[in-house]
Design a protein around this nucleic acid. Structure first.
Lengths: 123, 123
DNA sequence: CAGCATACCTTGCATTGCAAGGTACTATGG
DNA sequence: CCATAGTACCTTGCAATGCAAGGTATGCTG
């Protein structure tokens, strides 16, 4: 089923892009929700809100790509730290590959100044 | 409102990507539905089905980005040719810029091997 | 004339991203 | 010691999206 999703992803980068940047952000170790959110908000493309992030983290955990642990440091508010599982790491590698493919494909379409006649009679 | 959508797009490339490749495919002149479909199916990333394409073309036309004309050539089946409007051409330029921005942003996130500590304490 | 191909369109479903609105606890400053 | 603001996580409900599946209509081919 991981391979199924993989296939699908190649067809729709829109869904996978967010997943990709989240998994990638956890490469360096466990990170908690709001910190991850602020990290992603650095860039306009990946700037999401809490209403997007938390459900997505839930889903990634449900799919076995992430583990989550509550951690209480000192007297601060407890935080929920998310961490890549083995499966999550594999998925990350696959998504990165798919991402490169997508960029290549789209750039190819943008680069070729295909004439309408060309397209109309089928390449 | 065009600018509104523009802003939104920077946040979600997933929606804009398809729009982008469709508009880009029409740069060279009018193209009809199925030919466009086959053109997009050349690449895995942009391989969509009719159930996706036709509603999307309808929306783009409704938004004034495309014009559509039925054309009867010889005795063949009549075809509906889609063509960029002035507004559509402007949108294409904007989407191409946004696409580059997205690729830059995501590649930046993928490139920086940010440590978890780094992220957790906010950049 | 049966069957296939071309061409466009529609319905219905599951999924998504998000704004908005919680809950609960900590720190601050008057 | 109370009010306000800040941190942190979560939920609900809506609108939009992509798609599989199925539909209509016409032409071509054996």
């Amino acid at each position: 089923m991981a391979e199924d999703e993989q296939e699908k992803w190649q067809i729709q980068l829109r869904k996978g892009a967010l997943e990709l940047v989240i998994l990638a952000s956890l490469r360096g170790g466990a990170v908690y929700g709001l910190a991850l959110l602020r990290h992603l908000q650095q860039f306009p493309t990946t700037a999401i809100t809490e209403g997007t992030l938390y459900p997505l983290l839930d889903r990634l955990k449900r799919d076995g790509l992430l583990d989550a642990n509550w951690m209480q440091e000192g007297e601060a508010r407890p935080r929920k730290y998310y961490e890549l599982t083995g499966k999550g790491k594999q998925k990350l590698v696959a998504l990165m590959r798919a991402w490169r493919q997508s960029v290549t494909d789209i750039d190819a379409l943008l680069a070729t100044k295909a004439s309408a006649e060309h397209i109309n009679r089928g390449d």
